[in-house]
């Protein structure tokens, strides 16, 4: 459904998107994961015909976005990161307007607007001004406004930014529902748990480059011996810990990050008691000990040397 080949987008000398390639099958829910400034929104901008690429090729439904933007626009819906609605109008008036803009009218439009308001749980608030809505309600309306013309492909650009956990859960349920209905979705986020929860496949983007691509399991398998045990020790004891760890079976390395020691091992469950024994023998506290299973965060860390949240914050 979507083919992206060697996509390049520059702002002056800065390459915001630098040779990105991926494809998305019809009905697939594809996640573009990366911190703020990684190039996600720019990629969506080119795919949705809002920005002109400086290199590469993008085809959606067989149409080139550069030469057949009109045809592409018939296929796509876009949900921007911002609340792209007229907040001084009601939810109903907003959807009616966007429907008319897409050529809908009459009873069909009224019916479609009713369906979407129900889908977003906003039927009771349909006549209220959007500016009186909570953040979550605005996000849900923003999302269904992108569906008014029943697109085949939906671009969702960080649709859960700035809302509480409950509202986020409702949005994610809505998106999952769209996925089950067979809509092709490209979903950008810097929340890895959202990408893990929702997406069939994930592309990890960093500084304009796609650094990893695949389903969740295959991405995590790239990490290899990925269990990580973290502990806090006084700096003076780090050397002694490193020396002891060299003798432990299953310990494949010790690193240091933000003052914490990080012990890599294929099986954290087996190594953990060994470390606890050493701590007791050396009169050191056990409270600051934690074990982390392989996940996208560790993948991102491995690929970029930085945490997602570090860049996002």
């Amino acid at each position: 459904m979507i083919e992206v080949r060697d996509l390049v987008k520059k702002y002056g000398s800065h390459r915001a998107v630098d040779g990105v390639s991926f494809s998305v099958a019809r009905g697939e829910l594809f996640g573009l994961l990366g911190p703020n400034g990684a190039g996600k929104t720019t990629t969506i901008g080119v795919l949705s015909t809002l920005l002109r690429a400086d290199g590469g090729q993008v085809r959606i439904g067989g149409h080139d976005v550069a030469t057949a933007a009109k045809d592409v626009r018939r296929l796509i819906g876009v949900v921007p990161q911002e609340i792209a609605l007229y907040t001084d109008l009601s939810a109903h008036d907003n959807l009616m307007f966007w429907g008319r803009l897409h050529g809908l009218g009459g009873a069909a439009l009224t019916r479609r607007v009713g369906d979407l308001l129900a889908m977003a749980d906003l039927a009771d608030a349909a006549r209220r001004k959007v500016e009186t809505f909570s953040g979550g309600m605005q996000r849900r309306l923003n999302l269904v406004a992108g569906l008014i013309h029943e697109p085949e492909v939906l671009f969702l650009d960080e649709p859960t930014v700035g809302i509480d956990a409950q509202a986020r859960t409702r949005i994610l349920e809505l998106i999952a529902q769209l996925g089950r209905q067979g809509l092709t979705v490209i979903y950008t986020t810097h929340y890895l748990e959202e990408a893990e929860q929702l997406c069939d496949r994930i592309g990890v983007i960093d500084r304009g480059r796609l650094v990893a691509l695949g389903d969740k399991e295959s991405l995590i398998s790239q990490i290899g011996d990925a269990d990580m045990i973290r502990l806090s020790l006084p700096a003076a004891r780090h050397e002694a810990f490193r020396a002891a760890s060299a003798t432990w079976e299953g310990c494949t390395g010790v690193g240091e990050r933000r003052g914490k020691l990080e012990v890599r091992t294929p099986d954290g469950g087996r190594l953990l008691p060994v470390i606890q024994d050493w701590l007791r023998a050396n009169d050191l506290p056990l409270e600051q000990l934690e074990i982390e299973r392989p996940n996208l965060e560790t993948l991102y860390l491995n690929l970029t040397g930085r945490g997602l949240r570090e860049d996002a914050s």
Binding site: R73, V78, A84, L85, L101
Partner: peptide, 14 residues
């Protein structure tokens, strides 16, 4: 332009 309703207008049939 800032809240992207203009972008949404652009990718409609207009």
């Amino acid at each position: 332009r800032q809240d992207r309703t203009l972008a949404r207008l652009v990718i409609s049939r207009a």
